[in-house]
Design a protein around this nucleic acid. Sequence first.
DNA 1: TATCGTCATGACAGCGCTATCATCGGATGA
DNA 2: TCATCCGATGATAGCGCTGTCATGACGATA
Lengths: 337, 337
Amino acid sequence: MPRKTTLSDVAQRAGVSPITVSRALRRPDTVSPDTRDRIAAAVAELGYVPNPAARALATGRSEVIGVLIPSATNAVFSDVLSGIHDGIAGSHFNVQYGITRYSARTEEELLGVFLGQRPAALIVSGIDQTAVTRRMLDQADCPVVQVMETGPDPVDMIVGFSHHDAAAAATRHLVEAGYRRPGFLGARMDPRTQRRFAGFRAEAEAADMFDPDRCETTPDPSSVTRGAALFRALLTRRPDTDAVFCNNDDLALGALFEAMRMRLPVPERIGICGFNDLEMTRAAEPALTSVRTNRVEMGARAAAMIRARLAGGDAGPPAVDLGALVVPRRSTGGPPG
Amino acid sequence: MPRKTTLSDVAQRAGVSPITVSRALRRPDTVSPDTRDRIAAAVAELGYVPNPAARALATGRSEVIGVLIPSATNAVFSDVLSGIHDGIAGSHFNVQYGITRYSARTEEELLGVFLGQRPAALIVSGIDQTAVTRRMLDQADCPVVQVMETGPDPVDMIVGFSHHDAAAAATRHLVEAGYRRPGFLGARMDPRTQRRFAGFRAEAEAADMFDPDRCETTPDPSSVTRGAALFRALLTRRPDTDAVFCNNDDLALGALFEAMRMRLPVPERIGICGFNDLEMTRAAEPALTSVRTNRVEMGARAAAMIRARLAGGDAGPPAVDLGALVVPRRSTGGPPG
DNA sequence: TATCGTCATGACAGCGCTATCATCGGATGA
DNA sequence: TCATCCGATGATAGCGCTGTCATGACGATA
């Protein structure tokens, strides 16, 4: 393997000094068009690729955007990641992920690692950081975006939606559809799930329909199988339950299948509402009502805010509420009559 | 923000030279227990975190493992990612992803970027790289692991399974279950999909049951909705089709829902087989037959091979076939009789 | 006792880039 | 005409770390 081409090689080739090449690459307008062209030619001929480590060392700042998410396999977060990737496409930035596995401690550790790299920016999930994490974020001298939620006291910038309000809206939809004995299915019970539960509870209480015995939850991870199990447990304990708000679409799909197995007609005998509006809700039979959250856009917005900030331009408002929309489908068509 | 603590700060605090601290951190056995302890104490007191950029510059080698995958939202790849994360947990390595969007050209570009970072190792998806990509990989002086497939001519190391054989096995299962007019549903039609199709075709032809008119494919991305549409199209054109091998579980789920809408009993009237054995196949009603591929383990193995290689130890065989297993469930219970 | 090898540690230089200040020729204005 | 400014380029130093070689102390060996 031949030695890697360096700035100096390019400089020599173009007949200028290394620093001029550096300038031509980073701020082309500060170099005369003539030399700029010669340098561009030399770069192309030599196939020069800048060494990001050297740049990071000299500037004290890397071009890595650190992203901390609880899980890579949860469709919700991979959508956000996808949006982030869209948002940084065409820039010089790179994305580095850390998976916290829903552990605030792990998040804290990973953040320490990221901070050691002097990241260009940080994206973290949610607003429930430990005190130590919070302090590190406050002191990080780079843009920080919290995603997935809204909240009164962001570290820096925040883009997301209110899980409480979204769940409340879904619950209201169930009530308006004519259901009277709604239940709640939840797994994992992380902070976002808890807020959704709070939204369900608030709205159900407002309609005088809240019954703690109709809330079936587990700290275990969410899955379709778990949704089926929770649904059966709920309907066994409270056979008169006539609707379920599921904390996410996986659970809802499991509930739907279990309802089939139990021969409970959906939506007549029991209504089912999911959360996140994954693609499959549309194609299900019956199609599943769900709550649309703009996850890809969330990631893209976070990336855009970071780019604007780093470019020194106007980054727009520091808090963006992308909202969430109940999408009514047949699974909550209401009881007969 | 106070200046970041450096090696020298730690050295001063511990009363040794910087280079000794460097050694204590990287190869503790080369330093006397006494000084090692003093240095550890100093590191803890000062909260020292090494600067990876400086290390990368000095060694000519970063601690980033570059991973190139077609999509972050496809559950298949996020499982692999998850496995990679498991596999590098506790090491000093970091993972950086590039999303190729199923484009060999994009893969080529991203690889160029990664190579500029002098990664510790590379993980790429599949074996269908462009000539340029292939050359870059051949010349990369770091471990390279191809994942998701097996093949006769790996760049370096490879871990995966034969899509052809896995699809053939699934097709054989359909035949053995008693189905006689099997069809194929495929989307995206990327190289892996094509190989699965080839496996289906080979096995169907062997049983004298191949009919090109029973193959419904689209270059568009895969989704549950798409599965439903392809299923309907196939059953409309060839109403006597009695089983479908779906290229993945999303399509299979869509096919299942569409079969419900069309009132075609599964598995009596039509058998449905998926691919990947995502979690939901178990919970579906009827439960979906699928092909189990060991995606998480694939990522973990790739990471382990890299770690072993970089540690200078025995990395084991350079080609690992993780196999794939047909998991029969009720959706392919066979026609009556 | 002289010699050698080994272990623990240190001095020095340099990885490839950029921040900072310096330089220089030429255009501008009084 | 001379001082002034500006745009384009260069020289220098250093970012924080590690590779390499040097050093010194000590015990083993003959």
